[in-house]
Design a protein around this nucleic acid. Structure first.
Lengths: 353, 353
DNA sequence: CTGAAAGCGCTTACAG
DNA sequence: CTGAAAGCGCTTACAG
């Protein structure tokens, strides 16, 4: 069951254990002849390095960091919560995790945080990124020091990270559009969209995806120009209230960004029928709004799953192992009937007796 | 960073390493006085056992088995595929996996397979279960031999397994109903349901959940009595074709069970508008039907996620560790726009460079 | 460029 | 009931 060890390889190759180790781990200072012999033996025996043993002997600890935007954003609170929760369990695997607060959506702030990372010993970091050339230099330095870097939720400049974990926001927007279209079922209508900022790539992509599907498959629906909200609940509340009063012409709301508290406020205090309503990210208030029938759908990106995946990926990257197979990460549709039991604490549905 | 070791504990407790080990691992044959001293030291130092080291020293291998129904069922093919794929990667962690074919939906067959498990050394098993008292005896014997047992997709008798991994089928049915209701958007309609067998608990539960939501929230919709299909595509094809011909009275189809190939066949060959259409489990043909606009929604239970979870859970159970936090497992809604890239091979959306 | 040896944190006989 | 010692598969100085 358990395969050949390095001793077996060394013996088969006719070299010492230490030499075999040197070629396996590419430590250099080995004669080509020895290298060939060892490589050959590895091949013949099907040797596979025992990572656990290696980690034990070198007293490996994984020092990880997550760079997460600060602020009241409920979505990132969920991300934090899940990191903290996982960290507790992962400490048994010698994984220590640090969450670094980053000023939200500030390239300068993010850059500084990345530079600061140099101050502490680190093996891997997951970063809620931004697309900016300003980040390239500090990221390059980080990686030069052997730190594994991945983008989380929002990508980093692609050449300067090893992987990205997040949903495709165009797909998220397309999904929202499909559901909105289905809900109209052939009837004509007009959809009022809300967007935080067209500079935010995720917002722009969602809107694009949304428009594409409506244009292609629901010719009777019109996508109204987005109202710019800066993700501010007050702005959303006011503009949504306006739209609700301006007659029955608006048949659906789609908020591409955050600030849903305001949207929900406008809907819940407005008399009469409301439009079909789709928002993003399942958090306490959007969940409650689903339950209260103030909105119809939430498109979510499962931050819990993303965080889990970040841990697995960082470990694999740090150990320089093959990456584990990861199921696709698609936007999840929530209605009031398939809500998880507890958004914040991720109560397990697994029943332990 | 790395905490105290057993040596530290032994020293602090004033006993030998071996004695400390005996109380940590409850091997017995220790004086109460020693036990107390060690317990005390563990408490004071915050000792936590290094599972990796322990596994190395005892040359631990995890021998796991999955009991999966045979047959042409595309859903279980997905389950198998993911197990096989994961197995490849897990072998690096000394985890070996065996898939045992079980005759589908036969209590006797399942019982025999469980009994046969006794023939091979095993640490843990995940079983696509059935509810039958016939299974209790063999399961009890298995667990008495120290094998960790969990139910997968379909539960086992609850007292005879340590955990269950699967969705709540009532929730799945409720979700299907919510979407069907939304798609009618206030218009009246009649929903033709199809069920494989009312004896199958998952089918019955889905139908129940579906009916509950329609009755409670969509008074203008009627749920027609289910057509019994035995999951046979031919039966589905014929009865769906009938329903389609009998006028425009049917506004939606909901197939609680399998055999969707037949349903899709009927729809795709039938002229004119089709009803709103919801089925379960994303497999090759249901995915294609979404793309081709022959159906509207697929409610899926993410077998890939379930299998991953089964591995994590079995390991934790076998190591007798605390269970990792697991995100909720809710039915996933697929439309044609949030389809994963590759249903069978689970291609990674994680982009590696 | 190569090798012998100690040590990582544990478990498992073995001897008392 | 208790302890000393070898060994799991590796890495890391250290000596040649």
């Amino acid at each position: 069951m358990s395969g050949p060890t390095l001793s077996d390889v060394a013996e088969a190759a006719g070299v010492s254990y230490a030499t075999a180790d040197r070629v396996i781990n590419k430590r250099g200072n080995v004669a080509q002849k020895s290298i060939d012999k060892v490589r050959d033996a590895v091949e013949r025996l099907g040797y596979v390095r025992n990572v656990a043993a290696a980690n034990l002997s070198r007293r490996r600890v994984y020092r990880l960091a997550f760079l997460i935007p600060t602020g009241s954003n409920a979505f990132f609170s969920r991300v934090r919560d899940h990191i903290i929760q996982s960290a507790d369990h992962l400490s048994a695997d010698s994984i220590s995790v640090r969450i670094v607060d980053v000023s939200a959506f500030s390239v300068e702030g993010l850059k500084d945080s990345i530079v600061d990372l140099a101050g502490s010993e680190l093996d891997g970091v997951a970063i809620v990124g931004l697309q900016s050339r300003l980040l390239e230099q500090p990221l390059a330095e980080l990686r030069a020091r052997g730190v594994a870097v991945i983008g989380l939720v929002s990508d980093l400049p692609v050449e300067f990270r090893s992987a990205y974990i997040g949903i495709d926001n165009k797909v998220a927007g397309r999904t929202a559009a499909r559901m909105t279209g289905l809900a109209h079922r052939g009837r004509a209508g007009a959809i009022q969209t809300f967007v935080g900022s067209m500079e935010a790539r995720d917002h722009a992509e969602r809107l694009q995806g949304f428009r594409d599907v409506i244009a292609a498959d629901f010719p009777d629906l019109t996508v109204l120009d987005p109202i710019l909200t800066k993700d501010d609940p007050a702005v959303l509340c006011k503009s949504a209230a306006n739209a609700l009063q301006s007659g029955a012409s608006v048949t659906a709301f789609y908020n591409v960004g955050a600030g849903n508290v305001g949207l929900i406020e406008a809907i819940s205090t407005s008399p009469g029928a409301r439009p079909f309503c789709v928002v993003h990210e399942l958090v306490a208030h959007s969940k409650q709004a689903l339950i209260d029938n103030h909105i119809d759908l939430v498109i979510d990106q499962r931050p819990d799953v993303e965080v889990n995946r970040a841990f697995a990926l960082l470990r694999a990257l740090i150990d320089d192992r093959e990456l584990p197979p990861m199921p696709d990460l698609m936007p999840t549709i929530y209605v009031r009937d398939n809500l998880p039991a507890d958004t914040l604490n991720d109560a397990m549905e697994v029943q332990i007796r």
